[in-house]
Every structure is written in structure tokens, then in C-alpha cells.
Amino acid sequence: MNNLNEVTHIDNVKLSEDGKKVIIIDQTKLPNVTEYLTLGSDKDIYDAIFELKVRGAPAIGICAGYGIYVLAQTIKAETFDEFYREFVKYKDYLNSSRPTAVNLSWALNRMEEVVTANKNKTIGEILKLLGDECRAIHEEDIKMCGAISEYGLSLIKDGDGILTHCNAGPLATSRYGTALGPLFLGKERGLNFRVFADETRPLLQGARLTSYELEKAGIDVTLICDNMASIVMKNGWIQACFVGCDRIAANGDAANKIGTSGVAILAKHYGIPFYVLGPTSTIDLNCKTGEDIEIELRDPEEIRNKFYKEPMALKEVKCYNPAFDVTDHNLISGIVTEKGICYAPFEKSIKALFV
């Protein structure tokens, strides 16, 4: 039986009751198996992020906040300098796991600021403050997702067809999600949408996660291959495109899962509004444009072998496997944040969010 509340309030990342471990749903096992992992070591947490067991920019940030808190508790030190030196080692190690999603470094930097701002306190007091901070990061994300969902819902109406790419629902965030949040919120209020989910090659986040979340919530979802987006747009079945984001530059260029920029180009051609939804924590004002965003390159075997019983290409064939691409701000109709919707010129509207 479909259960909207069960989907929107899933505990995909949380701290154990004793505060010593991070508990996550292993997203690589979905949709067929729901398995929780308990992470306690630096390698466990690093691997969970790198191997996409936890994924989605906000969820990565939440996991990183909890993770560095868990690791900080294992540090054996008598002085602040000793503690801080080990803390930074853990922080830098976790931060190296994935380069594109800004929430990873944002959360880790925020946790480090707690340490440096309280150097005159005891290590025990610092640990208490770190515990408070990582929990605050999670609670703030829940509130941000709710606000984003409200703003996003204002852009669509009952019966609309929505196309989405990759996964930006509760599994990738907390509670309602970002790009999928308006759809879940609308469902709660009696609205019905027809959602077309790109499968999102090569890791199939749209097939494995987005269609899973929407189907479980009782929302009309149709799974399509990535190269079918054009025909469903041409057929008149799409009234808006909603996608998440992993990093937004100061000019409005947005990095998201590979294939997103192609969807935006198609939407522009067919006159369909294309919206990027994400919290202000994904905005990186230090990145002037998308050219400044580092794009993660992943193992070519994800293209050649993953999800196949046998390789689908000869081992000698080269594979190019960028995890993300950057959508030019000129293709984006609006950027939906928890503080409101930004419209062009994005340099001004984004800057206004932080005044």
C-alpha cells in the first residue's frame, strides 16, 4: 500500500542513539533491498560518500556533519592543538571523497568553525558543541526542504506533467526533498501530477530511486530512458522540468547529475520552463561561473560493466564518465531556494539572498 508519509519522512541519514555512529540507508541496494549501514570509522564514512551509498548534496552534507562528529569523539588528545590537528586530518580526508557537491565542504567547514571558535573551551565542551551543530545542520535541512517545496509548488498546477532528472527526493536530502519536494507536498494537498523520470545513466538514480520514491508515495510516475526526454516534451506531456543541484555558481550556472544540461537545452527548444531547486547551502559564491566548478570523473567501468551480467563494450574501448555537467544560467527559468525563487539576472538575485 502506498504511504506518502513513509516516503517523505524516511530516515536515510541519522545519528545512532548513543551518538557514536552514523546510520544510513545504502542507496546502492535500492530499490530491491532496504539495508541500513552503521558507519564508525573514517574509511567507512569516506567509502559511503565516495561509493554513493549516501548521495544527494544535502544528504552528503548531513552525513559529513554527523561523520566528523563521530570521528572527533575518537580523537585521543590532551590539548586543543593536538585535538585540532587530528580533527583537520579527518576533515580533509572526508572532504576529498567527492569534489563537486559543495554541501560536503560546507558542512565540514561549518563543523571546523565550531572547533576554532571555541579553542579556549575544554575538549569535552567542544565535542558537545559539535554534537549540537551536526544535529542543527540536519534540522535546518528539514526546514529548508519544506520551504523549497512550498516555493516550488507555486510554479505548477494540478494535472501538470513534470520531467525530472536524477534524484532529489527525501533519499537525497531530508524529509520532502528539493526537486521532488513540491510533488510530495502537492500530493498531500490533493493535487495530482504526471511525472516523467529520466533513468539517469550510468548509475540509474532516476530508475532506482526517483521512480521508487514516487511510486511508493502513490504519485503517477513514468520511467523513461534519458534519450526519450525529447519525445515526451514534443508530445506536449511536460509543463515544467524540476531538477536538483550539487553546486550553483554566483552567476546562476548549476552543476547537477550528468545529462541535466541536455534536458535544459531540450526544454529551451520546446518552450518549457526549467527550474533548479536547492538550498542556499549549495550556492558557492566563490565560483563566479560554472567554469570554476570541478567536475568529478568516475570509474569507466560504471559505463562498461555496472548493472550488466557481461560487459557491454570491449575492455579496450575508452570510456568518459563525468558524474556531473553544468547547466548554463541562460537555460534556467528560475532557481528555487528556501529563501525564495531567484530569476535572471541571477548574479543580482542570488546575491540578494545573502544580504
Rank of each mutant, 00 (worst) to 15 (best):
W106R: 05
S154Y: 02
N103P: 05
A117I: 03
N109H: 00
S105H: 05
E150P: 09
R135W: 10
D132S: 14
I123H: 06
R135L: 15
A101L: 01
C145M: 12
S97A: 13
K128M: 01
K121E: 10
N109Q: 13
K143C: 08
T100R: 12
N118S: 12
K121V: 05
D141V: 00
E140Y: 05
G124M: 04
S149V: 00
D141A: 00
K119F: 09
I123M: 15
I142F: 02
W106S: 06
I148V: 09
A117Y: 13
G146E: 03
K128W: 01
D141Y: 00
E113M: 13
I123A: 10
L130H: 03
N118R: 02
M111H: 06
N103A: 00
A147D: 09
L153Q: 11
S96K: 15
E112A: 12
T116N: 07
K119Q: 14
G131D: 02
E139N: 14
E139C: 09
W106F: 13
E125R: 06
I137E: 01
V115F: 06
A101H: 08
I142W: 04
G146T: 01
S96P: 11
P99C: 08
K119S: 09
R98Q: 13
E112T: 04
S97L: 09
I148H: 02
C134K: 03
L153G: 02
A107F: 08
L129D: 08
T100C: 05
G152I: 04
R110A: 08
S154F: 04
M144F: 04
A136I: 15
L108G: 07
N103R: 07
L104W: 04
N118G: 10
L129C: 06
I156H: 09
G146L: 01
N120D: 14
P99A: 13
C145Y: 05
V115L: 15
L155K: 12
G146R: 01
L127Y: 04
D141Q: 00
S96C: 13
N109G: 07
L104I: 10
S96Y: 10
S97R: 15
A101M: 00
S97P: 10
E133N: 07
S105Y: 02
N95T: 10
K143I: 11
I126D: 05
G131C: 12
I137T: 04
G131W: 12
L108M: 00
W106P: 07
T122K: 14
L130F: 09
E150W: 01
V102N: 00
E113P: 05
N109S: 13
K121D: 12
K128H: 03
K157G: 07
L130E: 09
E139W: 12
L127M: 11
N118Y: 06
A136Y: 15
V102P: 01
L108C: 02
T122L: 10
K143E: 15
N109A: 05
G131K: 13
G131A: 14
A136C: 13
R135E: 09
V114Q: 02
E133H: 03
L108Y: 03
S149F: 07
G124W: 04
E150A: 08
E150R: 15
N95R: 14
S96I: 12
L104F: 07
E112G: 04
D158N: 14
A107Y: 02
I123N: 14
P99I: 13
K143W: 06
V114N: 05
T122P: 14
